[in-house]
Simulated assay, not measured.
Amino acid sequence: MVEDGLMARRSSRPRRTAALALTDVSPCPCGLPAGYGECCGRFHSGAERAPTAELLMRSRYSAFVARDAAYLLGTWHPSTRPARLELDPGMEWSGLEIVDTTDGTLFHTTGTVTFKARYRHHGNRGELCERSSFERVDGAWLYVDGTFLE
């Protein structure tokens, strides 16, 4: 089973991490021009579900920024979802670029999103590139797994 590439670790014990303070008017971490509340915040709050695989990918990236493990687990396909999720407190996400999408719209049941995510881990800069797979289950898009790319 492949873990979500955004540096989550499975753990037998939960670890508390400080969440990024996002407000409705904060710029959304996913990079779209809307404020957090109109963009990924509406998905994180449960007010709406992401209508496409790409928007789910963006909202999951923003959840990593905000260290919202509950949202990440809730949007993970049950067949690959870990029992617990430990987010690395030394990881600081600094930007998301969507490279490609295949399917993943209202008219599909599966889709892929290829992305690059920039980060700083304990002061060292890096970039993660992954092709993530998504499946729509009962109308909700869920993250299935991902393949790391170079």
Rank of each mutant, 00 (worst) to 15 (best):
A83F: 15
A83D: 15
A83T: 12
L85C: 06
L85Q: 00
L87T: 00
L87P: 00
D88V: 01
P89I: 06
P89W: 08
G90P: 00
G90E: 10
M91V: 08
E92K: 01
E92A: 07
E92W: 05
E92S: 08
E92D: 11
W93N: 01
W93T: 00
G95L: 03
G95Q: 02
G95E: 04
E97R: 08
E97H: 08
I98R: 02
I98A: 09
I98L: 13
D100V: 04
D100T: 05
T101G: 05
T101C: 12
T102M: 15
D103Q: 14
D103K: 09
D103I: 02
D103M: 14
D103W: 11
D103P: 01
G104C: 10
G104H: 07
T105H: 10
T105A: 12
L106R: 14
L106V: 14
L106M: 14
F107H: 09
F107G: 06
F107L: 15
H108T: 05
H108L: 10
T109R: 14
T109G: 14
T109V: 15
T109K: 13
T109A: 14
T110K: 10
T110Y: 14
G111K: 00
T112D: 14
V113S: 05
V113D: 03
V113H: 04
V113T: 03
V113G: 01
T114R: 13
T114Y: 11
T114I: 11
T114G: 09
F115G: 02
F115D: 05
F115V: 11
K116C: 15
K116T: 14
A117S: 11
R118L: 11
R118Q: 09
Y119W: 10
Y119C: 02
Y119V: 00
R120P: 01
R120T: 10
H121W: 09
H122P: 01
G123T: 03
G123P: 05
G123C: 10
G123M: 09
G123L: 10
N124V: 06
N124Y: 09
R125I: 07
R125S: 12
R125P: 07
G126V: 01
G126D: 09
G126I: 01
G126N: 06
G126L: 04
G126Q: 07
E127G: 12
L128T: 07
L128H: 04
C129R: 11
C129V: 13
E130P: 01
R131P: 01
R131V: 06
R131A: 09
R131W: 06
S133E: 08
F134G: 00
F134C: 02
E135Q: 12
E135W: 06
R136Q: 15
R136S: 13
R136L: 13
R136H: 12
V137I: 12
V137P: 03
V137Y: 10
D138N: 12
G139F: 08
G139L: 12
A140R: 08
W141F: 08
W141N: 03
W141A: 01
W141P: 00
W141L: 04
L142M: 14
